[in-house]
Simulated scan of single mutants.
Amino acid sequence: MGIGLAVVRSLVGLHGGTVRAFSAGAGQGTRIRVTLPALAQHAPAAASDAPATDGGARGLRVLLADDNADAANLLALLLQAEGHTVHTGFDGITAMALADAHRPDVMVLDIGMPGANGYEVARWVRAQAWGAAVRLVAVTGWGIEHDGGQALDAGFDVRLVKPVDMAHLLAAVNGSPPE
């Protein structure tokens, strides 16, 4: 359940729905009920009524690195569903190699990764000629009292604490305040 349920709740909430968990007790299993609003039925749009495809927000190149593969893969799916191209790594060394190869617009980095932690990766990115333009988002399980400003000192633009509210994550990636 953990982060998975938090991700599901945030995704469903973004679509105006609700999630409820039911259990009769330990060893009795769990039922999850997801409720989403019905979409209104519309007649197909005529060709002249079709929205322009160039008017929306452009997809970003996002690099996501977290040593929890399940969390990383869920976040990657969310970001891909938003139209972003996502490259995923599970340690800091891989994150640096992917960043060097793909030059992302945004990097979402876990702090406590093996190989090189998120602070080290952020400092490395900022030391690259292309690194000043990258939006760096720290995602950590460590509470605010543990950080002591290290995220900002390392070059992160935004710091989020797990479990991450998906609206806040999307806002951080897109560079806009959450709704």
Rank of each mutant, 00 (worst) to 15 (best):
G13E: 11
L14E: 08
G17L: 12
G17R: 12
V19P: 14
A21D: 15
F22M: 11
S23P: 13
S23C: 10
A24I: 12
A24T: 04
A24R: 04
G25E: 15
G27N: 09
Q28Y: 08
G29E: 13
R31D: 06
I32G: 13
T35Q: 14
L36N: 05
A38Y: 07
L39T: 11
A40S: 11
H42R: 06
P44L: 14
S48A: 12
S48G: 00
D49E: 10
A50Q: 12
A50V: 05
A50E: 12
P51F: 00
A52Y: 14
T53S: 14
D54Q: 00
D54F: 11
G55F: 03
G55H: 15
G59A: 11
G59D: 06
G59K: 14
L60V: 10
L60A: 07
R61P: 10
L63N: 05
L63D: 03
L64H: 00
A65R: 02
D66E: 07
D66W: 09
D67M: 08
N68F: 10
D70T: 03
D70C: 01
A71H: 06
N73H: 07
A76I: 02
A76N: 10
L79W: 10
G83S: 01
G83F: 04
G83Q: 05
T88R: 09
G89I: 05
F90I: 10
G92N: 04
M96K: 00
A97N: 08
A97E: 02
A97R: 02
L98M: 11
A99K: 00
D100V: 01
H102M: 11
H102L: 09
R103S: 04
R103Y: 04
P104L: 15
M107W: 03
L109E: 07
L109S: 08
D110R: 01
D110F: 12
I111H: 14
I111L: 14
G112Q: 14
P114L: 02
P114E: 09
N117S: 00
N117M: 01
G118E: 13
G118F: 00
E120G: 06
W124C: 03
W124M: 00
V125L: 05
R126Q: 00
R126Y: 09
A132Q: 08
V137A: 01
T140R: 02
G141P: 04
G141S: 05
G141H: 00
G143W: 03
I144A: 05
I144R: 09
E145T: 03
H146L: 08
H146G: 07
H146E: 04
D147M: 05
A151K: 08
G155M: 08
G155S: 13
V158F: 06
